[in-house]
Write a protein that binds this DNA or RNA. Sequence first.
RNA 1: GCUGGUGUAGCUCAGUCGGUAGAGCAGCUCAUUCGUAAUGAGCAGGUCAGCGGUUCAAAUCCGCUCACCAGCUCCA
Length: 631
Amino acid sequence: MMKVKLNGKNIEISKKEDLYEKIEDFRNVTALDINGEKRDLFSIINDGDTIEPIYYGTKEGLDIFWHSSAHIMAQAIMRLYKNVKLAIGPSIAHGFYYDIDSPEMIKEEDFPKIEKEFKKIVKERLRIEREDISRDELLAVYKKENNPYKVEILTNIEDDMVSLYRQGDFFDLCRGPHLPNTSYIKHFKILSVAGAYWHGDEKNKMLQRLYAISFKTKEEVDEYLEILKEAKERDHRKIGKELDLFSIFPEAGPGLVFWKPAGAFMRNLIEDLWKKTHLENDYDLLYTPHVAKKHLWETSGHYEFYKENLFPDMEFPEGEHYLIRPMNCPFHILIFQEKLRSYKELPIRYAELGTVYRYEKSGVLHGLMRVRGFTQDDAHIFCQREDLDEEVKKLLDFSIFFIKKFGFKDFKVYLATRPEKFVGDPATWDQAEKALENAVKEYGIDYEIDEGGGAFYGPKIDIKIKDALGREWQTTTIQFDFNLPERFDINFINDKGEKEHVIMIHRALLGSLERFFGVLIEHYKGDFPYWLAYKQVVILPINDHIKDYAEKINDKLKENGVRSYIDKRNERLGYKIREAKLKKIPYFIVIGETEREENVIKPNGRKEGELGKMSFDEFIEVLEKRKNAED
RNA sequence: GCUGGUGUAGCUCAGUCGGUAGAGCAGCUCAUUCGUAAUGAGCAGGUCAGCGGUUCAAAUCCGCUCACCAGCUCCA
């Protein structure tokens, strides 16, 4: 008899099979947590063990499920392709991948073939068995196989003993745990294949990475594919084209955005709100030039750090060098240090919708999300050390105001610490990191540490918002900077009458207007809130004879500040309605003889559907209510 | 920047074996005056991304360039 603890309850068993009977929903258990360690499901159980089952539906359970799936996919590939060398095959947030080195290119049309072989392996119901082996022995095997990747991994392992997992004709160096056999993974789909550097280092060989997903049921796979489909539907590049929001013209230059009337209108609304709220929050608004002498960014250090990513400099015959600006900070610094500053005027908050240009590598450009010219909603706060706490809290408030205003329900705060490449002395860094952490803690908000994610000149707080599909997008960044004040020697006179270096906070709340707009498009799926919509109401006259009444309604709407227009085209009602819906206009009004005679309108809202007959004034009230609800 | 893929009308896409370019939608004209997601007919629309090569003949095969897409790397 053995005494073990299962899910916190003491039980007695005579053999391990008894334990399995006691575990609820045993068929959905992928592995066991034994004394805090993840082990294979059919591991040996010892007297006194504390056991918790790891279930399929949980994060840990899926992790194991997908890890075993990766092995099966690798096995299928090994069976189908010659001279394949395996690198690594982990599970990821959604699914898994395997990096392989194969002389033959795997293409999308090969996926069904691999999927078929995968299913075959599942049907074979191969036992997945752990084998403990000496590191040197396995090293010899991989050396013989001429697999440099596994050899490298093994060489970096310090233990004498390692484990491998074997299933039929396949084995792989692996820590485990794994599923008991291959039959668990009923449904599987390869999603994509693309290049990936070994160790993620561009100096290394590029391997082929196959991304895939697997589940127990077909429904789960379908559901996942549905989410991918939905993400595609929401793609801001697609919606941007459909709604005529923006264009990028390769003939003008990749990564350079043209805001077309509808998009530009919305951007103006965003900018108006931004300016108004910044003034309310004691910021001063600036305008500064788009080009300036290169030495400014040499002083700031940006040139040295980012010269690969700058537009080439402009040299004049007299030898003067200019740069199109990649950063706004030196300009704000110039204005700050133009005259002597007293501690009494701090903090000074300079804000600017500053357009910057960065030569991003061709492969990273992506719609509005990654571009070569973009407008930061930038600000620099010049303050004293003791102001930091208060300023960070104000910034968090301000950022969250925007997040809510644009309909985001959820967000995450990250504290990014010192990166490998940094300037300044580590003691100052530690101090700054602590100050940021304190401020966030006092603010009473959950946060995660992003180790080594800081800017080269200081630690930062990043806020990532979650969109309607649960995807994270970085918007707000709040960065401490003890570096630029030194480099530019920016000072103020403190209360003792001495010169002291100012502290700088760089911050962007929306990030860049381009990117933020892209996120908004995907978040709303182009179905913008009433206050932001380019056109708010479209009037659909039933025929030509009702045009006068339509004009009258339209004029009155405009008088009330409503963005409306008449669809005057000689088309049927159904056609006009269809287009109003496709354009995602918040309201349309059908008017004909009946409405004119009764002096009413019959509005229809995207959200509400038919609103029924109402007077014009009643409709204005509906619109006002809607607007206020969104505020 | 790297690996792979793609590039045909304003948009979405078809185009077989290399034989000389096609549809739907949008646009324009005409008819229709219509009640809650597409009225009908006609017309027009192309340097098949660009450049070069192979060939009697290239959208199609080959090379280079550009751009886009997926991923990797990067993102002050």
